[in-house]
Design a protein around this nucleic acid. Structure first.
Lengths: 124, 124
DNA sequence: ATCATAGTTCGATAAAACTCGTACATATCA
DNA sequence: TGATATGTACGAGTTTTATCGAACTATGAT
């Protein structure tokens, strides 16, 4: 769980770009999270991040959705503002990851529901 | 878990009024369930049924919401059509219960999320 | 029969949310 | 410097959802 010393709990900037604005853990609201997951495309996004991302964050394009860019921006923003994903700017790309620890802390079991979900129909 | 004989597993009509139209277990959709739970009032309904109902089904009025009746009809219907509650007509009243077994079977862990939820503000 | 009760249905309005085109901003690379 | 790639911001059109009043239905009691 922790590294060798207690001081290791002080996280250094870690060289990562800072996350885009997002709700803090204690600001996460179940109703907002549910609302964000009420959309099939957004469920696909989260599920794909959970099942197929190998420890890397992924840009919008990685998902391969055949949708206008402005639509994708809309959905990724919805996920970020509900607290489901964290986004960081890497040069041109804005990469996303699921806020696993935060979600597990506030809503244990939620992530498993998304993992187990099967889309009704391929949505692209 | 079971009663004395195997034949007891054949459930007799049980003298209950038939449930209003509802999706079958295998028709339950996570996105629909999430959508139904994205509303604070509907979360309150489910949570109150989970925590305060002593093995009885409860009518609309039992909840004590200060809202027009047509609004309550709307929300109870939304919950029923998403598969979260089962409703039966008892004379004048239409009593509701959470579809616990069905939800546990399809979305294990979901109910616990609602149980643990705390409303941001009293909604009435 | 009359009356009150519990809830529905309909219709209108208003507020959100989704979808997408266009224009824009910025980083990377030749 | 200019071209390209990733993604945002804004705005319009469309759809969905919420809210609520008013009229209605059906049950149960007096």
């Amino acid at each position: 769980m922790s590294t060798s010393t207690a001081l290791a709990d002080i996280r250094l900037p870690d060289d990562l770009p800072p996350p885009l604005p997002e709700p803090a853990v204690d600001e996460l609201r179940l109703e907002a999270v549910m609302g964000a997951l009420a959309d099939p495309l957004r469920l696909i996004i989260i599920r794909k991040l959970l099942l197929e991302s190998e420890a890397y964050d992924h840009s919008c394009g990685w998902f391969g959705f055949d949708r206008p860019k402005s639509s994708l921006t809309h959905h990724f923003k919805a996920l970020r503002e509900a607290g489901l994903i964290r986004q960081r700017q890497y040069g041109l790309e804005r990469r996303s990851r699921v806020r696993l620890e935060d979600l597990d802390a506030r809503f244990p079991g939620l992530i498993d529901l998304v993992k187990a979900w099967e889309p009704a129909a391929p949505i692209a």
